[in-house]
Amino acid sequence: MSKIDLPQGTLDLLVLRVLSAGEMHGWGIAQRLSIISQEALQLQEGTLYPALYRMEARGWIQSEWASSENNRRAKYYRLTKVGKKQLEAQKESWDKLAAVVARVMQHE
């Protein structure tokens, strides 16, 4: 299976989805994305960070330094109330878009 590039803007949605399971640091988010997508995504892990900062600036997520599972310092991100609403809204519009795209593509 060849790797696919993420369409513009969908990274935010994926990160929000991963964080909806609970707070996590950047490395962890990258691992989760890789595992869930079964390594199908062509993602340079560093691109997570601009997305994280953007969402933090918009108040969708919050961050805090804490010590990680193996006692290293790591910055943990978690969803805010606004972020949860945002996730729902984006998921909804994504679902609609995906359905519409699928319908259009199947139309002969």
Partner: peptide
Amino acid sequence: MAEEMRAH
């Protein structure tokens, strides 16, 4: 940011 990226 530098620390976070370095850790990663």
